[in-house]
Design a protein around this nucleic acid. Sequence first.
DNA 1: TAGGCCATCTGGTCCT
DNA 2: AGGACCAGATGGCCTA
Length: 265
Amino acid sequence: MTKARQERFRARRIKANARERSRMHGLNDALDNLRRVMPCYSKTQKLSKIETLRLARNYIWALSEVLESGQSPESHGFVEMLCKGLSQPTSNLVAGCLQLGPSPMILNKLEDKCGGPGMGSMVAGHPLSYPSPGLPSPPYGSLEASHLLQMKGFKGPVYDNPSPNECSSSTPPYDGPLTPPLSISGNFALKQEPSPHESERNYTPHHAHYLSSHHYPTSTTGSLPGGPQAHPLLQASRYELPLDVAFDSFGTNSFSNNSSSFTEW
DNA sequence: TAGGCCATCTGGTCCT
DNA sequence: AGGACCAGATGGCCTA
């Protein structure tokens, strides 16, 4: 191999690496968007990739069950479906989220952002915000205000992290519509804030992203999400595992009820 | 220290 | 030839 050829090869490899990085960032962005429409989205305690995919699968399936069977999403079975095949920490997280009723903290959060009770009042007073028959207590297990804002039928864009002066009054950056599995989830976070990686994409050497992306529920001891990394909302309540679910191993289970069956993937 | 999770690099394969 | 996609290898960070 001549030197010129080596250089060409090297240049090609560098370009390919950059493309691959970009491709993976796109994949991660998509995963972040998926996290946002999950029933227990939290910026501070991200689900791992695999858990996000598992929960998404469960979520779609559980909501389908709600539609088909008319069962209450507040039922034990709904939580079971959501937690199927998830790790114990993630199961704890989900179970804990679904036990949360409408939290004043969420409204306070909005008020903080928008400089007064206006936004919070609007949310609480929105005719479609809640209660929503047949759905879990708002915000439907979510930790995000967007879940509360976007209940059934509410089509307006919701920005879960508006810039200081925006407060949902101006056009936010938006790179495309999300397509949540079902609109009844009301979980339409349209604001596309930069992912942790995004803001660090200058490719300063290796793993700078870890400065801001290490908040994963990685506990394997079954500790409840009230620990050091737990979301503030979670720290405030008590959690109980759906015991018949949380300890299932992944990959071999099948779950069925009267209307459909469900096989692990 | 082990294990989990992650981003990145790399070479292979397929497609245009 | 070049781009997209994939999977294996590698090494860093974090938590228990």
